[in-house]
Design a protein around this nucleic acid. Structure first.
Lengths: 350, 350
DNA sequence: TATAATAGCGCAAACGTTTGTGCGCATTTG
DNA sequence: CAAATGCGCACAAACGTTTGCGCTATTATA
């Protein structure tokens, strides 16, 4: 049996479609519909189990109350948390969420973003892969409400919410330095990505600020995945002069690095210290709880949605805003205190 | 500037809307459209950056190429993984995914499911909260393609994909027994839920099968959350006669239980053994890597989508199918071997 | 040369809504 | 008692597609 339409209700109650529509949209007053007909319509609507066809509605109104979210990897707890909070907030404000996973692939991102536009979303939240942005330019030009999150482009004047990657990275590295470390490796994510650049800049600035020369051979990494952390760490540990600490710039990289460390029979922080960007899930239960720079994941999702819906609801286009969130250091046990005067390649006991 | 429509292309190329539509839908042959006009239309479509309005399309065709997925908690890695694989498979088959988070709340579930139906999804995948099903009955009656996952109802003849909860639980408990345990506690999830019932049944059957009496005071728990695991374990550890092992029936419960154990200054498996249902994220890096019954998460998502789309594409309604996936034991280090003859409340060294 | 066939395309209805406008009727007013 | 007012609702267009049917030229057939 097909879903009941306005027409069905109209026929059954002997009225016209327009009257039924107005009543169901609570406009009886404005169009002075009698109380009797109002009751009647509501009753028949209930009897027929009427649900408005949102496609038709969207077509007519040019609003679908649906927003899109596209992210690089939805199984990653970081993105999953953002998505969950986005979903909850959006639903609270009357919007559904279509989610897309680009698998860190720009081409996929293009595809998804266009498809979302086709489906008539009222706006979208994009956590871009981050190497290319022309496909997004189209939407800002055509005034499609858009919020960029996490990996931003300086050349695109869209709404953005991001965390202070530079500050976070710098805090991490300065924490290591304060514990006596100076031979510090960094395993970065996808290079030439805003996020990666900023974290790298925080790393080098922290070193320079403390008059520690930047050793190019300690700058490693090529993407945000686990495998990357594993491989780079594996090589790193085989070097003659091992660093005393590693700064891993994503949760997945951290996991890969730990796997390599344990595989080599080493322990954290006795043999090597680790500090990570991104909270790692269940870090408290780890063999060695990891000290991290945690991002406020839930807040990111929530703010992104609110920013987007503000845009959607505003009659005139608002000036794009940039919201920067501060990450915060969570000190656990993965960073050892190192004797400043000991050989740089020997990690001291805490 | 508004998006270009068929009408715009028609006007610009001096043709009719219908012709344009047919060409863009690759029906030129069927309607014998000349090659010249075909080229022309494709050119102008490209120039105007035409994207079909999927709302109008959906309205006309009664198919939106969108499916819904509703789950109890999208930030939980278990559901996040299912969702990710579902998204990827769906997109590969030409479908978008609208996701909804019910937060383990039946009322939310009702709301979401209805909204999805309103939005004209071609079908939905529901991971129900599990205490009530009347709102889903409507859809099976009205032949809306539907796939139920994980927490199923025996009284609803819909497509389902689920894992063998009974078998998994039984395997877990028998593993404990084989290691000498007999005082085994279980912390279950939401009672009167199919999943919970089956896991409990596996627990009791395993015990009975080995002539171990079932002690009602060792059956605990009221929902799948972390807090539940924490509280129940906290109480459990204060008992005079402590069990030698705990069977935690979800990943979150496990995390809560571990927190309680460590807080009490105890160690796994020296002081108490733990075996868990659900893989726990990064278990390999834990202070004590947890032995688990792992569910094939990605497979679940993939199968659910394929089952659903099979339904959607089939001209006549297919008989509902039930697909049961086997979970598998991953032995790590959280279960100690216990001397069968020792006092039951003393855990022996491995 | 008249008729039939075919190629190439347009007309218009339909999908289910929303909403500006207008129509018939009853009531009030002068 | 006629005109004016207001009440309660219906008509119809529009949103952007898809598709069955039919129309007009041109070409093939008799």
């Amino acid at each position: 049996m097909l879903p009941a339409t306005l027409h069905d209700i109209a026929r059954k109650s002997g009225l016209s479609v327009s009257t039924v529509s107005r009543i169901l949209n609570k406009k009886s007053a404005k169009y002075r519909i009698s109380e009797a007909t109002e009751k009647l319509v509501q009753k028949t609507a209930r009897e027929l189990n009427y649900r408005p066809n949102q496609l038709a509605r969207g077509l007519r109104l040019k609003r679908t109350h649906t927003i899109g979210l596209v992210a690089p990897d939805l199984s990653n707890p970081f993105f999953a948390s953002i998505m969950k909070s986005a979903q909850v907030v959006a639903h609270g404000l009357g919007y559904s969420l279509i989610v897309c996973d680009t698998d860190e692939n720009v081409q996929m991102e293009v595809e998804h973003v266009n498809l979302l536009y086709s489906k008539g979303v009222d706006g979208m939240i994009v956590l871009p892969v981050g190497q290319k942005n022309s496909h997004l330019g189209f939407f800002v030009e055509h005034a499609v409400p858009l919020v960029l999150v996490d990996r931003v482009f300086n050349d695109l004047t869209a709404n953005t919410v991001l965390i202070d990657n530079y500050g976070g990275a710098r805090e991490a590295v300065e924490f290591l330095i304060s514990r006596g470390h100076s031979r510090i490796a960094i395993i970065q994510g996808l290079p030439s990505t805003y996020t990666s650049n900023e974290r790298l800049r925080g790393y080098t600035d922290a070193l320079s600020h403390h008059n520690i020369p930047v050793d190019e051979s300690l700058i490693l990494g090529k993407d945000f995945r686990k495998q990357n952390g594993y491989i780079e760490t594996k090589f790193l540990l085989r070097r003659s002069e091992r660093p005393t600490a590693i700064f891993t710039t994503s949760d997945l990289i951290t996991l890969g690095a730990l796997e390599a460390i344990f595989e080599e029979g080493l322990e954290v922080p006795t043999d090597i210290s680790v500090i990570a960007f991104d909270e790692v899930e269940s870090a408290d239960f780890f063999r060695c709880p990891i000290t991290v720079i945690a991002q406020p994941k839930e807040t990111i999702g929530e703010i992104a949605v609110k920013l987007l819906i503000e845009q959607i609801r505003s009659p005139k286009k608002l000036d794009p805003r940039q919201i920067v969130l501060k990450p915060h250091l969570i000190v656990r046990e993965s960073v050892a205190r190192v004797d400043v005067h000991s050989a740089a390649d020997l990690a001291a006991v805490p």
